[in-house]
Design a binder for these strands. Structure first.
Lengths: 218, 218
DNA sequence: GCATTATTTGAGGATGGACTCAAATTCGTC
DNA sequence: GACGAATTTGAGTCCATCCTCAAATAATGC
């Protein structure tokens, strides 16, 4: 019996066999590719199935509707981000503010292939916005945590404000690098410069001194 | 006779009477509001007509299709931007780099109500992308021009790179200010700070000396 | 091999939204 | 106030896309 793991919509089934799990992977991969290319709205369920080498009925077996596909993707992306930010927080302890700025901005470039449809998904307007808000929240919390590891004594609220700015810079950089013929060729480097300048300035008061004590000013 | 001003699609008509011109205004205003709120895709032609207090047939009298509505809006926005950037170029001659940074970032806030659907429109995926590219190009050219007025001697290509960055900062600021519960409350100010820091740094070499000669360094 | 459950399939239902058009109405002009 | 032209109207067409479902097929355990 398809034991519907308690409280899915009308029809949402977990795959029970290896083949099913495999299919779900293929479907999500296809969905992520297509949504990254064309955007959420413009991607059709038929296309997703087709690119995954499946038929539309299979897609609807594992996902009750299009929104569920998007949600599943966002969930996965959140998991990736959590991992990466956890790793970042560890590295941050050993980094100077300058170096952290570079690491942060490069992080996204590295991360990009693993969360390629994230921006398309975040722009999509669906009913369940909480999941997207959670994704944003995780990202900001992750970056803020890294900042405070690097600059202990940095005010909690300020760290989150700075993190919000950093996150948006990363988003812009992604869009500059992704688009077909977006902006002028030097723009991405300018953006990096700006980011570096900004973080260096903001974290300067908290620069660690040789004896490990921060010299924050009142 | 509806003299179809040479080469519209199948049916595109210019309004011939005051009432028609008025209606077009109302329709575009409604479309701009809705698209700013909901995005391009999510806005339906029926809604646009309804919000303008018109019936769908009236909408289709003046616009052959949905894309034409979007294009008309982008055109108008471009016109607004051209005006504003022309005015900015004049002011820029009297401004220090610091002041220009502030003026630039505030410009968008002022401008926002007049081009409210621009970001939604720029994100929309339609066939005719050239119009959107032109809009981007105008904005970058306008900002770059202001930069070079303020900092004569600034390299042309570099000015455009910086302009691209500035434009994106403005876009981020707009999204921060517009969204429902987007980011932390201090983030917009942080963004302003960063922008200021960046422009001041980039234009420092070209700061005007009292005798009107720039002291650019090699 | 047989029963049972998981997965696949694809035709078709339902919906919504872009777009049409012929008839009615209003406006401007003489 | 009558004529033609501009505008309004809204029911109706068309079509893309989401989603359903009963029957076919494959895998698993005994």
């Amino acid at each position: 019996m398809d034991s519907n793991s308690s409280r899915g919509k009308r029809t949402s089934l977990q795959p029970m066999r290896a083949a099913g799990r495999q299919r779900v992977e293929e479907l999500l991969e296809a969905a992520s590719d297509l949504m990254a290319e064309r955007g959420y709205e413009a991607t059709t369920m038929a296309e997703i199935a087709a690119r995954a080498g499946a038929k539309i009925g299979s897609l609807y077996r594992f996902f009750p509707n299009k929104e569920a596909v998007a949600d599943a993707l966002v969930q996965r992306h959140i998991a990736v981000l959590e991992d990466e930010y956890a790793a970042l927080a560890k590295r941050a302890a050993t980094l100077s503010p300058d170096a952290l700025a570079d690491v942060l901005i490069e992080l996204l470039v590295t991360l990009h292939p693993r969360v390629k449809s994230l921006s398309a998904l975040m722009e999509a307007r669906t009913d369940k916005m909480e999941i997207r808000d959670r994704a944003r929240g995780h990202a900001i919390a992750g970056i803020a945590a890294a900042l405070r590891v690097c600059a202990p004594g940095l005010d909690e609220a300020l760290a989150r404000d700075i993190a919000a700015v950093v996150l948006n810079i990363m988003k812009v950089l992604r869009s500059m690098l992704a688009k077909d013929a977006p902006t002028t060729s030097g723009a991405p480097d300018e953006l990096r410069q700006m980011h570096r300048l900004y973080l260096t300035d903001r974290l300067r008061p908290f620069r660690r001194t040789p004896d490990g004590i921060t010299d924050a000013e009142p």
